[in-house]
Every structure is written in structure tokens, then in C-alpha cells.
Amino acid sequence: MAISTTVNQVKTIILEISELDGSIDDMDTASALSSLGFNGNMCNALAGRLNNYVKSIKVDAYVNNAEITSDMTVQDVIDLVTQKSGV
């Protein structure tokens, strides 16, 4: 799977959970999740959906809720997913 596909997929998941009006093209990878309105529950929801995504690529991969926090940047999340999924 191409890295750009993973980047776009992660950004799309973040955008869907944020419920903000905009597109993934407007999403700065240096933005912290908290600046996109994420609180603790939203980080947990993001971890759950990223978990489903990485499992679809690599069956034994997983993302814990504790690994996603609101001070992470979008790039941190992308890095975590690429590392977990081995993309």
C-alpha cells in the first residue's frame, strides 16, 4: 500500500471525527489534535478507528487508546499508523 494512501486515510478519519467543515487538503500535519477540537473521548474514538484500519493492513497490529492523545500532531498520528501497519 502506498504511503500517500495511508496519509490520506488517516487524515480522512481525523476529519470525520473532528466534524469540522473542510477538506483533508486544508489539514496541516503540524496541527495538534486538540487544535482540531479533540478531547479525551474523541482521541479514544480515533484510536478505535485507527485500530480497525491498521488491522485491515496487518492482522496482528493494534492501536491502544492510551497511544492517542490530544497533544499529538496529525503527523505523529500518521507516523504511528505507518509504524504499526508497516506501510
Binding site: E19, L20, D21, G37, N39, N41, M42, A45
Partner: peptide
């Protein structure tokens, strides 16, 4: 409870109204 989704009443998270004029 936590509930999310556009165009429904969110719970346990910020929701936005009126083109994000209100949170």
C-alpha cells in the same frame, strides 16, 4: 455516553452549530 456524527446531538465531545459560530 459518547456520541458523535454530523447532524445529530453530540454527547461527551464538542459539537458545532450554525456553521461553527457556536460550540
Amino acid at each position: 455516553f459518547y456520541r458523535s456524527g454530523k447532524h445529530i446531538l453530540d454527547m461527551g465531545r464538542p459539537g458545532y452549530l450554525n456553521n461553527e459560530h457556536f460550540t
